[in-house]
Every structure is written in structure tokens, then in C-alpha cells.
């Protein structure tokens, strides 16, 4: 098979048009879509890595949704009589420097992490897709301007850009989301642009044009749905990266502000009080390590399930 030339070399995920047949090129009913979704999940779960990943992801999502029900204590309740308590039946993970229950804080931390990750990725993805489609569909001058914007954003290591912006605006939950979203825009944009360029000349698009479908209709009903597979894979692969970035910012005290419990600030609390005991720091490390591992496994299994050929490219 002749290898496709890739319009944007260096993009992380490349979906070849040949794999698109079963990925929604044709409009389909809701039920067919649901069946295909179930099929992808089954294929993800069929690999041991994907199964573990799905398990972790499901667990984290459950924790985030049902945090108040799962938590054994109020995460912000201060109990100075029981500071630095070791793990026990009363406090599964022990307590912190203010006597707050660490298990409950970790559980509530999943809300912050998932909230930040999902909203940042959603914003970054939407902007990226819009800019990517715009770059493919407009004049070459606009395309060049958009590519320069992508290059400009990706000229910063993302943690540096985030630090620089947070320094000026002051740290807050909203800023963290927006800054992280900004660092994601070029990746989604480039994948979308590459994908649109490879779809745009396919026979079924030409057929639509011949029938007389408007440009807007073609973009919304045919071009964008065809970019969703690689964009979705990228989104899944970015979740652990975003969780790590938010944790890093919060760890440095430049992300989520106290008393809100985030995985990064919990790590910071544990790190600051290492001399009093290492359990809180180690637990915070383990939580972050397991969560990023779970989401990475899940993302990779998803990529392999949707685009088996990319497996060889790692």
C-alpha cells in the first residue's frame, strides 16, 4: 500500500483515510453510533492495558461524581486535635497539618482534576477544531496566520507558558483552565487541519458538492465528523498530560488555591510536611501516578482500537 503523505508531519496522531470507512464517514442513526461506541469500548477492554485503564478511569469518574457520598469526612473540616494522624479506620489516609481527613480530600481532589481536565480539553479542542477547519477552508493568508499562531503557542514548553500567564493574572481555577486550554489548541488544530486536508478531496465530498450541498453543510455534516476520530484519540491522550500540568501548577502554589483540595496542592501539603511523616506525600504521589497511568493506558488502548495502524508508530 502506498503510504499517504501527511500534511503536517510531527503530529502525534495520524489517521489514514483508509481506516475511516467504519468511523462515521456516512451519516448514521443514533443507535448505530451507540453500537459503534460499545464496539470501541469492547475493543479497548480486550487488551489488558486497556482493561486496567478503563477500570481506573471509571473509578476516578465515579469518585468525581459521587465525591460527597464517598468521602467519609468534610474535606475542609479542620480538627487541630488530630493533626498528622497516621492512616486508621477513622481516617483511611490519615490527616494533614490541619487535621483534615486526607481520604476525603483526595476524593474531592478528583472533582477538581476531572473538572479542570475535561473543561480545558473541551475548550482547547473546540478552538483547535474551529481554527483547523478555518485554516483548511479559507485563503492561504489566513491559513498561514493560523499556523503561525499554532507555532507561537507551541514555542513555549506548556508549563513555562502557564507559569508566565498565571504570574501576571494571579492564580485561580478559571485561569488554570484557560491557560491549559490555550496550550492544547495547536495540537488539536494541527490534527484537525491535517485530517480536513486529507478528507476534503475524497469522492464522497465531491459527490455532496455535485448534489448541491452547501459548503457549511458539508463542513458540519461530513468534514467535522471525519475529524472526530483522531481529535477524540488526541483528547483522550491529553487527559493525563493535563492532570499532570494542573497538579504541577497547584504544587507550585500557582494553580488551584487553598482551601480547595486539588491533587497538586495535596502533594504540596505533604511535601512541605515531609519532616512530620511521609505518608501524605507518598499517598498523593501514588494517587497521581495511578491516575495518569490509568488515563495513559486508556488513551493508548483507545488509539489502538480506533486506528490499529498507528500502533506500529507508537
Amino acid at each position: 500500500m502506498a503510504r499517504q503523505t501527511e500534511p503536517a508531519a510531527g503530529t502525534a496522531t495520524i489517521i489514514r483515510p483508509s481506516t475511516l470507512g467504519r468511523l462515521g464517514a456516512a451519516p448514521s442513526s443514533g443507535r448505530a453510533r451507540a453500537r459503534r461506541f460499545g464496539d470501541v469500548i469492547r475493543r479497548v477492554a480486550a487488551r489488558p492495558g486497556g482493561f486496567i485503564g478503563l477500570l481506573v478511569v471509571a473509578l476516578i469518574l465515579l469518585c468525581a461524581v459521587f465525591a460527597p457520598q464517598i468521602a467519609t469526612h468534610n474535606p475542609d473540616a479542620i480538627d487541630l486535635a488530630h493533626r498528622f494522624a497516621p492512616p486508621s479506620l477513622e481516617h483511611f489516609f490519615g490527616t494533614d497539618q490541619l487535621g483534615r481527613d486526607l481520604f476525603s480530600r483526595q476524593i474531592h481532589g478528583s472533582r477538581v482534576a476531572m473538572g479542570v481536565a475535561l473543561s480545558a480539553i473541551l475548550i482547547g479542542l473546540s478552538l483547535g477544531v474551529v481554527l483547523g477547519v478555518a485554516a483548511a477552508y479559507t485563503t492561504s493568508a489566513v491559513e498561514r496566520a493560523i499556523t503561525i499562531l499554532f507555532d507561537a503557542i507551541s514555542s513555549f514548553p506548556s508549563i513555562i507558558l502557564a507559569l508566565a500567564l498565571v504570574a501576571v493574572v494571579g492564580p485561580s481555577l478559571l485561569m488554570v483552565v484557560l491557560v491549559v486550554a490555550l496550550t492544547l489548541v495547536p495540537q488539536f488544530g494541527r490534527v484537525t487541519l491535517a485530517q480536513v486536508l486529507s478528507v476534503i478531496n475524497m469522492p464522497f465530498i465531491e459527490a455532496e458538492q455535485v448534489i448541491g450541498a452547501s459548503k457549511l453543510r458539508i463542513v458540519i455534516h461530513h468534514v467535522i465528523p471525519n475529524t472526530l476520530a483522531p481529535v477524540g484519540i488526541l483528547a483522550a491522550m491529553e487527559v493525563p498530560v493535563v492532570i499532570a500540568l494542573e497538579a504541577a501548577l497547584s504544587f507550585l502554589g500557582l494553580g488551584i488555591q487553598p482551601p480547595l483540595a486539588s491533587w497538586g496542592s495535596l502533594l504540596q501539603d505533604g511535601y512541605q510536611n515531609l519532616s512530620k511523616g511521609y505518608t501524605p506525600a507518598i499517598i498523593a504521589c501514588l494517587v497521581l501516578a495511578i491516575v495518569t497511568l490509568g488515563f495513559t493506558l486508556c488513551g493508548e488502548a483507545l488509539r489502538d482500537a480506533i486506528d490499529p495502524k498507528s500502533r506500529r508508530r507508537a
Binding site: 515531609l274 511521609y278 501516578a289 493506558l297
Partner: peptide, 23 residues
């Protein structure tokens, strides 16, 4: 490999700090 690839480096840093300097 996948464990180390997915783990953020500062998490590994803290684990190393705890292991080497505290333990």
C-alpha cells in the same frame, strides 16, 4: 516503560526525595 512514561517527572522526583533523603 508505560509506568515511567505516564508518571509526571515531579512525582517521581518527590518519590526519589522521600526514598533517598528520608528513608
Amino acid at each position: 516503560s508505560i509506568i515511567f512514561v505516564s508518571m509526571p517527572s515531579f512525582i517521581l522526583g518527590i518519590i526519589f526525595l522521600v526514598v533517598f533523603s528520608v528513608w
